[in-house]
Nucleic acid binder design. Sequence first.
DNA 1: CTGAAAGCGCTAACAT
DNA 2: ATGTTAGCGCTTTCAG
Lengths: 349, 349
Amino acid sequence: MGRGNITIEDVAREAGVSRQTVSRVINRSPNVSGSARSRVEQVIETLGYVPNAAARRMGGARSYLLLAAIEGGTAGELAGRLPLDRMLLEGLAACSGQGYHLMFKQISQERDLASALTSLTPDGIVLLPPLDERAEFHHMLERRGLAAACLAERHEHGRVLPGLDEAGFGEAATAKLIEHGHRQVGFIAGDGDIVRSRRRIEGYRRALAEAGSRAHRHFVSEEPRDLAGAIDLARGWLAPTIRPTAIIAGTEAVALGVLQVAHELGLAVPRDLSLLALEDTSGLARSHPPISTLHQPLGALFAGACMRLIEAGEGGGAIRPQGTLTPAIASAAHVFMPRATIARAPRAV
Amino acid sequence: MGRGNITIEDVAREAGVSRQTVSRVINRSPNVSGSARSRVEQVIETLGYVPNAAARRMGGARSYLLLAAIEGGTAGELAGRLPLDRMLLEGLAACSGQGYHLMFKQISQERDLASALTSLTPDGIVLLPPLDERAEFHHMLERRGLAAACLAERHEHGRVLPGLDEAGFGEAATAKLIEHGHRQVGFIAGDGDIVRSRRRIEGYRRALAEAGSRAHRHFVSEEPRDLAGAIDLARGWLAPTIRPTAIIAGTEAVALGVLQVAHELGLAVPRDLSLLALEDTSGLARSHPPISTLHQPLGALFAGACMRLIEAGEGGGAIRPQGTLTPAIASAAHVFMPRATIARAPRAV
DNA sequence: CTGAAAGCGCTAACAT
DNA sequence: ATGTTAGCGCTTTCAG
């Protein structure tokens, strides 16, 4: 027994069957008689047997390991890019529910990916943004026949591409306000991923242009704003007579800042000003009034990606290449949290 | 070559040595001639060889895997307890720098721990709070001869116990304010881990009592406060003539709330009111004025715990039991970030 | 449906 | 200093 752990051998002996039968039971092979199966399951329970993951992999089968690839950079640099804490917890829940393990790894170059793959031989890999846009990575994975997944897919030029649809996200947020009669909609980017902010603004512009508004020429702040920056900007926008009737805030800090300025200026929210935040935090749920959000549920999207990878693996023993992955149906790309900061636009501006 | 990966065998053949010599090179064994070593290293580089982690474990040696045990619960429940995103990133950096892998796992009961250990056979395990106080877990690890580490240790009743010294943390924060002449120091707990908040308050009380103050009888809020709650409370405290001259805020939200109330009431910060937050976030660094913090660098503490585990393993081939772990010298238990919200107490209250 | 044999890639232990 | 041998625990063959 080597290090004293209970092995498949122990279970086999105790149950009076061969190792192979035990193996079939733990791998849910159909070719096991009911009696043998129940006996083995009984012994497994009694002995508290747990298969050794490394040995399992060595047998040449699945590794029951999923890899989540994070972009390179220090903790400080990556701060706020992705809600890694939620993704970790929700991904863990999805994986361990299926008997899978989950491991995160920072990947900068192709060789990092190659090392991780040969060293760990995962059954699948989730390319977290912005790695999901690196064609080289997809190629390498395809070459190795490894299942890959992204948080979501976007539709562009009639094609389906990997990556979050940030433009669509910005568009949807804007549409939500337009629905309520707003035309003078402002957009303030928060600090975080600048690239993603830009894309959201594209969508915002598109939606406003289609609605015949020109607000996107005056009321956009592309540069990242923190609380103080948002406050400064909001004062400039909201004090004049001609002002936005609704503002989209990229982050919690921006939303709180705008809300504060509205208070200062005596603007009632949402009567005089509607407010929509693009991330969902506890602070927003508890402000006065609580702030409505349209956000990407990245934790759920990540868990969904893990599930798809697992299903792809379970499918036929062999792991299907990335192309055959089922679409991200598990969770919506964005979720609206109606709270108390969206109302119909006032008649005149 | 099985799945097409380069194995130690390929390297050995190419370098004209035995597998064992290659193994010795990658494991930094001293018993290799310079010529053989350089030849092997050359081939490894050329072929891009990376050892297979599973096979390495199977060889009976180290697994080069560290496990971080998180308490059970959903992502929502655990929100804000621990800065898992930072810990993940900083831990990853520490581990991968040493050729180690890092895996997080939620552990609720003993059997979860047992499963994780037999399934993954990690070389060491970090018990994240509050798991670090579960004696059963320590016992199990000791029984298995597995190295364990916590984020930090605390000193209590003359004994060294696992776990963060939350009381000492609260005490240090209070002392910092007392140093500046404050006696009327308030404490507002944020939402998050209630148990930890309580302990901090213990330390806070102790420090004030020793300084001969009775402020801790009036100006303590044990119950978790969010932004709105903090604002309500702060209004009650700061409007009267007899009021705290300094406030310790458990979280960012609380600190920002207090600051807002100070503004409302025309209290200058820090002239009329000093403010110290117990967590360090970008929002605090950017408020007006930026808020001073005394915080636990949990990311760094976690990375330090990983390093200690790795060193313990490297030490003598066999992994040393937990008792022999070196203390957490890598990083201080708390870090003071002087910004602009602490000043000497006003003369009269 | 079940068992026996062979081997995954690596490293301890033992030789040399 | 280096090579040889024997597994680690499991799963894939391939036979019954």
